[in-house]
Design a protein around this nucleic acid. Structure first.
Length: 434
RNA sequence: GCCGUCGUAGCUUAGUGGUGGAGCGGCUGACUGUUAAUCAGCAGGUCACAGGUUCAAAUCCUGUCGACGGCGCCA
C-alpha cells in the first residue's frame, strides 16, 4: 500500500514505516548518502538512502538514478528541519521502475524550450498547480449551472457557417465538401433553449485569428450559457455570480497551489464579497476622457489600451454594456432605452482587473427582418442561416447568453503573464506541437 | 495584415572583423546531512539555413526558415 506524499507532509506518519512511489525531482549524493527529492501528484518529499541501510545494489541504484526516474521507497518517516517541507523518509528499501535518461529540462530554461517540451514541463510544480486549479474551475462551472437547474448541452464542433463576424475559421475537409471548426456554440444553443430552456456547456473553440499575443489561443475552451426569457441585464448578473463562484471554489480547494503561484489570496477573498460594477460604453468613454485624457471617438470599439485604462479605476472586474451597434455582430439587438449619441446594442463585455476580456455576451435579436438586414450588411449569404432564421418563426422569445474564456479567467485568477500556461498543450498561430 | 525582438554545445549564454569561451546538465573519481551541494578530470560546436562583401565572417549585407512579443481583432 502506497501513501500519497501529501499524507507524509501532514505529519501523521512520523516514526512509522511507509511506502511511497513517484519520480525523482532532485537528487544529489555525498559519498555514502543519497538525497533524493521524490515527487508525486500530491507533493514532494526528501528521501535519504544511506550506504549500509539498504542492500549495496539498491544503494547503487539510488545513486545512479537520474532526475525523473520512477521509483518506490519504503522507509521510516522522520521530522527533520534540514529536509524541505520538514519531513524526510529514511529508506530501507528502494525499487527503481525505470532509470530515466538525462532529463532535458534543467535549471535554465527558455520559454521556447519549455513549450517545445511541454509534454515534460507539465510535470513541473508550477504547471501541476495550474492544472489542479483548472480542474477545480471547470468542475465549479458545472456545479454553478447545475445548481441553477441548467442543462448541459453539447454542440456540434463541425459547423457549416460562422457566427462571430470577423473571426476567421479553421476549414475542415468534409468528404467532398467543406465545413468549419466551431468558433461558438451560440447558434445551436439558441435552438436548444426552445427545448431545454436554460443550457450551458464547456467546449473547445477554434479561431484562426492572426493574433500573436499573450492573450490568444487558436484552440481554447469556452464556457457558455443561453437562457430563454432572460435579458442581457439578467445574464450579466449570472456572469458575475459565475466568476465569483469559480474564485470561491478555487479558494476552498487550491490554497496550496495559489500560494505556490504567489497569488494574492486576500485580494481574491475580498473580490468575491464586493459588488462588481456595470457601466455603459458611453460612460466608459467619459471616464477615459476625464481621468485618463484619452479621447476616443464614439462608435469605435474599445481597444486593449483603453480597456486596461478603464479597469485601472476598479478593484474588481467590471461589466461594460451597450457598445455601439455598428461595431457588433449581427445577432445583437438595438437597445432603445439607452442614453447614448448613437444606436447601441444589448450586449456586454466583462473586463478583468488586468484589462483582459473574460466574458462577452448579449441579448439575441428576435426581429427576423433586423437579422436579415444585419447579415446582408455584413455580406453574408442568407441561405447559410436559414435554419437559424427559422428560430424566429416558431414561437420566438427574448433570450440571452454569454461565453466565458476558461483560459482567460484561469490566467487572470492565477496571475499568469501568458495564457499559454493556462492550458496543458497550447495551440497558437505558430505552434500546434506537442 | 502591420510593427518589433531573437536564433552560438542537450540547456542558459559570453563573444561586433583576426585560433569559438563559460555555467548548468552528462560521464569518471572523491566526499556520511545535502538543500537545483562541493572538489578534480573528461566528452560535447554545420555559430538556424543559403548567398554575398572581405586577405579573413558567429560578427557586416541580402534573402529564407523558425521562435517570441506588440498593434488590430477577440474569450
Amino acid at each position: 500500500m502506497f501513501l500519497d506524499i501529501e499524507d507524509i507532509l501532514n505529519g501523521d506518519h512520523v516514526d512509522q514505516e511507509v511506502s511511497i512511489r513517484g519520480w525523482i525531482h532532485r537528487t544529489r549524493s555525498s559519498g555514502s548518502i543519497v538525497f533524493a527529492v521524490l515527487r508525486d501528484p500530491t507533493g514532494i518529499v526528501q528521501v535519504t538512502v544511506k550506504k549500509g541501510n539498504v542492500a549495496e545494489e539498491k544503494f547503487q541504484d539510488a545513486k545512479n538514478a537520474l532526475v525523473e526516474s520512477s521509483l518506490a521507497i519504503t522507509g521510516t518517516v522522520h521530522e527533520d528541519d534540514r529536509a524541505p517541507g520538514g519531513y524526510e523518509i529514511r529508506a530501507n528499501d528502494v525499487k527503481v521502475y525505470d532509470f530515466a535518461e538525462a532529463y532535458p529540462i534543467t535549471k535554465d530554461m527558455s520559454e521556447e524550450w519549455l513549450r517545445e517540451n511541454r509534454h515534460l514541463w507539465i510535470r513541473s510544480q508550477r504547471m501541476t498547480a495550474i492544472m489542479k486549479i483548472r480542474s477545480t474551475m471547470t468542475g465549479a462551472i458545472h456545479e454553478f449551472f447545475r445548481e441553477l437547474e441548467y442543462h448541459e448541452f453539447t454542440p456540434p464542433i463541425l459547423q457549416p457557417n460562422q457566427c462571430e463576424g470577423g473571426s476567421t475559421l479553421f476549414e475542415v475537409k468534409y468528404y467532398d465538401s467543406k465545413t468549419y471548426l466551431s468558433q461558438t456554440w451560440q447558434l445551436y444553443a439558441e435552438a436548444m433553449i426552445f427545448s431545454l430552456g436554460k443550457v450551458y456547456d464547456m467546449s473547445p473553440t477554434f479561431r484562426a485569428e492572426k493574433s500573436k499575443t499573450s492573450r490568444h489561443l487558436t484552440e481554447f475552451w469556452m464556457a457558455e450559457m443561453e437562457a430563454a426569457w432572460l435579458t442581457y441585464l439578467d445574464v450579466i448578473e449570472i456572469a458575475k455570480d459565475e466568476v465569483k463562484y469559480i474564485i470561491m471554489r478555487i479558494l476552498e480547494e487550491n490554497e496550496k497551489e495559489l500560494k505556490f503561484l504567489e497569488v494574492d489570496i486576500e485580494n481574491l477573498k475580498t473580490m468575491v464579497e464586493k459588488e462588481w460594477p456595470t457601466i455603459t460604453y458611453t460612460e466608459g468613454l467619459q471616464m477615459l476622457k476625464e481621468k485618463d485624457g484619452m479621447d476616443v471617438e464614439w462608435g469605435k470599439d474599445l481597444r486593449t489600451i483603453e480597456e486596461i485604462a478603464i479597469t485601472k479605476h476598479f478593484d474588481t472586474p467590471v461589466a461594460v454594456i451597450q457598445y455601439p451597434k455598428e461595431a457588433m455582430a449581427f445577432y445583437k439587438p438595438i437597445e432603445e432605452n439607452a442614453q447614448a449619441p448613437g444606436p447601441v446594442a444589448k450586449c456586454f463585455d466583462m473586463l478583468a482587473t488586468d484589462g483582459t476580456e473574460i466574458v462577452g455576451g448579449s441579448e439575441r435579436d428576435t426581429d427576423l427582418k433586423a437579422l436579415i438586414d444585419s447579415l446582408e450588411a455584413e455580406g453574408e449569404d442568407i441561405a447559410n442561416y436559414d435554419w437559424y432564421l427559422d428560430l424566429r418563426k416558431y414561437g420566438s422569445i427574448v433570450h440571452s447568453g454569454y461565453g466565458l474564456g476558461v483560459e482567460r479567467v484561469l490566467a487572470w485568477i492565477c496571475g499568469l503573464d501568458n495564457i499559454k500556461d493556462a492550458i496543458a498543450f497550447p495551440r497558437t498561430m505558430n505552434r500546434f506541437k506537442p
